[in-house]
Design a binder for these strands. Sequence first.
DNA 1: CGTAATCGATTACAGGTGTAAACAAGGAGG
DNA 2: CCTCCTTGTTTACACCTGTAATCGATTACG
Lengths: 128, 128
Amino acid sequence: MSDDPQQGERITEAELAVMEALWAQAPLGATDVADAVGKARGWSLATVKTLLSRLVAKQAVATEPDGKRFLYTPRIDRSDYLGTESRRLVDRLFGGRAGPLFAHLAETEALSAQDIADIEALLKELKP
Amino acid sequence: MSDDPQQGERITEAELAVMEALWAQAPLGATDVADAVGKARGWSLATVKTLLSRLVAKQAVATEPDGKRFLYTPRIDRSDYLGTESRRLVDRLFGGRAGPLFAHLAETEALSAQDIADIEALLKELKP
DNA sequence: CGTAATCGATTACAGGTGTAAACAAGGAGG
DNA sequence: CCTCCTTGTTTACACCTGTAATCGATTACG
């Protein structure tokens, strides 16, 4: 065990925007990421480069040399990330159980008809 | 508009532990909170006092004098907090829709039989 | 070949967070 | 009445985050 995509290091909000860009398309050079992300968030190229460095340090992103520059690729799966974060929320706020989370969303009318339909379909699948 | 329980100020992880103690029982003095929370997290009384001050500054907690000390009471509702945080996660990671969140929890087998039963019951209620 | 553009790395810096000690004022006990 | 304890307030300090400028090397262009 040495350089596995360790998930000990937390990804921050700003870093997440960079990850999203890389999840959408990879590998990318720093300038490409800045074009995709910096444009929407008003970040300078320097800022994006810092975020990329931090993500590399956290082993959330891998680098691959391409001539004089680097190409960046996500090292952790978006799906895994979603899982970790969802679980963190459910654990922190709902005693680790998803039922109460759902109940809460339902109570506060945060569920759209679409959401309800989705969930119904899923339940049907889970109960064959 | 002056001293409403403003929800602009974010409550941090450490502060949340203090809020949980107050949500479980309030009002409480600082020492009581430290007994309840500091014990489990290994915090000194000083640390708990700092967190309480910050929560008061953020208007998440109200104070009421009781002799020479203060009694602390939550100023924001736990249910409101859960709502804000759940929504934040759903917005940040699932495009604002709860359906995909449940799909994800289901896929990763993060739903217990209990959760599924809960959700089924709730769905039945939502669809009269 | 020399100079400008580019790229990663290093450094910066203010504000938030976790964790706590020091301090000041008022009350409690002897 | 004087000393100690309790309690809130102030200050501390290191690390994390957001945001970026600067630097040194390398490449590309003229």
